[in-house]
Computed example of a mutant assay.
Amino acid sequence: MAIKLEMLRTFRVVAEQGALAAAAERLGRTPSAVSMTLAQLEDHIGAPLFETDRKNRLTPLGQRVLEESSRATDAFDHSLAAIGRHAVSTAGTVRIAVVPSATITILPGIIAAYRLVRPDVRLEISDVDSAAVRRRIKTDAADIGIVSDAAGDASDGNVIFEDDLGILCHRDGAIFAAAAAGGPSWTLLEREPIIANPLCRLVDHPCIPPLLEGCNLEARNTTALLSFVRAGLGATVLPRSAVQHLSQEVAFVMPADPLTRRQLRRIRDESRHLGPAAEAFWASL
């Protein structure tokens, strides 16, 4: 009899539970059925996997078989989950991982246009930073991603939007007063506590690295950053498009030393096939 996946799964559960009855309850089977499956597995291997009939201690061979059983059953479960996700995606769900600034700038308009032609599709939006977007695409946790990079720096994806980066600060703070008096510069960030976010690292100015190293407040959500600046907790770096509708308390200052532009790029795993709904959203970008 060939070894079957169910034998490996049964053995794994028994080994992890350390008792036949507990394993049988977890598997939803009778103890005698579980015992028979273990016997079949040991017969095929030709050696015992447990030191005693109590199933609470593995033989050295049993330890090795447990490692391989865990690997095999985890891989199978992962494949089943992936198949289920692909089936859902084909049926009408699209998983999109996107940087926070894009969720309040370009994404609402794209979704509105997409809904006109695909109103039946469910869109699941994950609001994360660029590194997390790339991880989700790599691990098949998202179908489509939108990342943010300095203009000309990235090698992946297609550019779908570009705008300028600048300093978001409070109108009553030192940065805004100095910018009004002497012109904008990235060195103005030295006048107030910096609120770090991934976009700060896109600015190629020598004052930025030491400021980030000494920073004690970081946020990745654009709404949170706006709230912190309004509360007078410091200043941060954001794209112009993310601060188009500013409240009276804050201001946007755009330094030109250097002028820094960021790009939004759409990315996908080219080795994977997108379902019709996801392919349509990709095209809409």
Rank of each mutant, 00 (worst) to 15 (best):
S101Y: 12
D153Y: 13
G182N: 13
F50P: 00
V147E: 07
H44E: 15
N56P: 10
L165R: 10
T90V: 15
W282G: 00
G18R: 03
A278E: 06
V94P: 02
L123F: 06
I195C: 02
Q244F: 05
C200W: 00
S155W: 13
E192F: 01
T103S: 03
D149A: 15
V14S: 12
V65G: 04
I194W: 05
G173A: 15
V133E: 06
I3Q: 08
T105P: 10
P258Y: 02
A82L: 14
V203C: 07
A141I: 04
V88D: 13
A277F: 11
E213P: 05
R115Y: 07
V88W: 06
L38Q: 09
P198V: 00
D172E: 14
W186Y: 05
A178G: 05
T59D: 09
E25N: 13
R29C: 07
I45E: 02
V133P: 11
R171H: 00
G145M: 10
S284I: 11
S155Q: 15
T37R: 13
L264T: 03
N158Q: 15
V147H: 02
R12H: 10
L20I: 03
V14D: 12
R265N: 09
R268I: 14
A15H: 06
P48S: 05
L259K: 13
A24H: 02
G182S: 14
N197W: 06
T10P: 09
H86G: 11
D163F: 03
L20H: 13
E6V: 13
F161C: 10
A278Q: 07
E124F: 09
G183K: 01
L49T: 04
G152A: 08
L58D: 12
A235P: 02
H78R: 15
A142E: 06
K55I: 03
V237R: 09
P239T: 00
C215L: 05
R29K: 14
R266N: 05
S32R: 08
S69M: 04
V203W: 05
F176G: 12
P210C: 08
I96V: 14
I267P: 03
T90N: 14
T73A: 05
R54Y: 09
V99T: 13
G232T: 02
A102M: 07
R171A: 10
A251C: 05
P276V: 03
R136V: 10
R261H: 15
A87Y: 12
V250Q: 04
A180W: 04
P31F: 00
G92C: 02
R201F: 05
A150E: 06
I111D: 03
M1E: 09
R26Q: 14
D143T: 08
V253Y: 08
A39H: 14
L217W: 08
S227I: 06
A24M: 01
L188H: 01
S89L: 07
V250K: 08
C207F: 03
M36A: 15
R265L: 08
P193K: 01
A141S: 14
D74S: 11
N221W: 08
S271T: 06
I137F: 03
H170I: 04
M1P: 08
Q40L: 13
F176K: 07
A91K: 12
P60D: 06
A179G: 04
P108K: 07
